[in-house]
Amino acid sequence: MAPPLDQLKETPSQTAGPYVHIGCTPNFANIAGVYPADLGASMVNEKTLGDRIDIEGKIFDGTGTPLKDALVEIWQADNNGLYNSPAETRGDADPNFTGWGRQPTDLETGVYRFKTIKPGFVPFPDGRMQAPHISFWIVARGINLGLNTRMYFSDEETANAQDPILLRIEHQVRVETLIGRRKGDIFTFDIHLQGEGETIFFDI
């Protein structure tokens, strides 16, 4: 038998549980005075380049009830399609845009909301362009491994029709679960964990 590869296993995930806010958004959880602000609460400042938008929505369980104890993180490119990251190899991103946001769902209504900008285009590894999109990561009680999905934009029909990832989805009827719907400057992106209209989740 060949010797084993000298490789470690990723530490297994465990649910974030019902009190994820204590660790990730303590000010939201009324634990005041430990950190000056919750990380990821603000993505933009007055100098950020790009079209200002809000993204909001709810996360529904299998009965259609919104989750009121979830945490959502988003990660996106800047106005020019560059990520504000040391691992970005294509150029320097807008220093006035973090690209990363973290918000809890409201304890009463279940609504999450991000104030951000519309991202630019990011290439696929083969050189084709991806349609503008925002990466989502969702954790909560009852979710054993954080869920990855993406939001695309309802006003980018042409780009969406050529997006390398959307094109490879076998059941094209499900693509609409990934589209945030524009009304003014607000995009609504609801996430359905299961049932009819279950959101597409990605194994990345």
């Binding site: 989750l67 009852g142 979710i143 964990l193 597409i200 989740f201």
Partner: peptide, 8 residues
Amino acid sequence: SILRSPQK
């Protein structure tokens, strides 16, 4: 996890 797990 029963109502919060994706089925697809």
